[in-house]
């Protein structure tokens, strides 16, 4: 019967794309990670776990993992904390909050390359706007992107500036789902603003927080563009993220085996994170209707 095949026919195009460009590549990354290849040679011999052994014994990998973890662990709490605070002020559907929401949201849909270029200028040592401002205050020039201590901080600032509006928009949707009666009850009990925020808003918006936490940690572990434009991982590896390392090994050193091993490790790391969310956090979150 033709009609029994209908749903298969409908899903076939999407499933084919996903199979060819997502699922088969996972298997082929795994396969390539046990081989040695440089894009050119006619053979790709199996080398066992050699690529993983080299990866785990390289300073480069542990440095990248550390830098990426710091980036994620610092930028995510700042983003979420700031976003919830701002969102709680902009939650009402009135003109002033709609205007401000729009402005804060805009960077999250703007080209990351453009933003990285603009902030490269802002933080440029000579002729940059921030140093120009510091000089009018009688302070010296700061080598923002050339100083290993500062460069990662600048990237965190840029990332926060870009993504904050997204977090705010999601939080506002979450906040609007909280029944007004709960706030009314808190008001009747004479709760002060800060207390209501801590005791009512924060716990009730927890599902949204968990969602954002997972999404933004996963995203932070995949940060690439802003780093590639602003610092290229430098100075001296101080901002070298995992994906920047992956791009370098795969597409400038053409070490396919090593690059694939790194991709597999990154994949395993993020999958573990996603499962952690589903299994552990998922059980503790039951505020949704």
């Amino acid at each position: 019967m033709l009609s029994r095949l209908t749903p298969y026919f409908l899903v076939l195009p999407l499933i084919s794309f996903i199979a060819v460009f997502t699922y088969i590549p996972i298997a082929s990354s795994l396969n390539l990670s046990f081989r040695e290849w440089d894009f050119l040679s006619p053979t790709m011999p199996l080398v066992g776990v050699e690529n993983y052994r080299l990866l785990f014994s390289s300073h480069e990998f542990w440095n990248s993992l550390k830098v990426t973890a710091i980036f994620a662990l610092v930028s995510v709490p700042i983003r979420l904390g700031l976003a919830l605070l701002v969102a709680s002020y902009l939650v009402r559907e009135v003109l002033p909050s709609r205007i401000l929401r729009g402005a804060l949201f805009l960077p999250s849909v703007t080209s990351t390359v453009s933003i990285a270029v603009v902030f490269s200028w802002l933080f440029a040592t000579d002729y940059g706007m921030i140093n120009a401002f510091l000089q009018t205050l009688g302070l010296g020039k700061v080598p923002w992107l050339q100083d290993p201590q500062l460069a990662l901080g600048v990237l965190i600032i840029v990332n926060t500036w870009k993504q904050l509006g997204y977090d705010i928009v999601i939080y506002i949707a979450g906040l609007q789902a909280i029944p007004q009666e709960l706030y009314d009850a808190a008001a009747v009990d004479g709760g002060r603003k800060g207390r209501v925020f801590r005791r009512v808003t924060v716990p009730l918006v927890m599902p949204t927080t968990y969602f954002l936490l997972v999404v933004s940690v996963i995203e932070a572990f995949q940060v690439f563009t802003v780093v590639d434009i602003m610092t290229k991982g430098g100075p001296a590896g101080a901002t070298d993220m995992l994906v920047n390392m992956l791009y370098r090994i795969g597409f400038t050193l053409f070490d396919i085996g090593q690059g694939s091993a790194l991709a597999v490790v990154l994949f395993a790391l993020l999958t573990a994170l996603a499962l952690f969310k589903a299994r552990v956090l998922g059980r503790r979150v039951h505020y949704e209707a």
């Binding site: 390539l32 996963i218 992956l246 795969g250 990154l266 994949f267």
Partner: peptide, 18 residues
Amino acid sequence: AVVATLMIPSHISLIPNY
């Protein structure tokens, strides 16, 4: 399988897709 692609980091497929 479709929903899972939301969680799969796209960089795993960078080299194979190339």
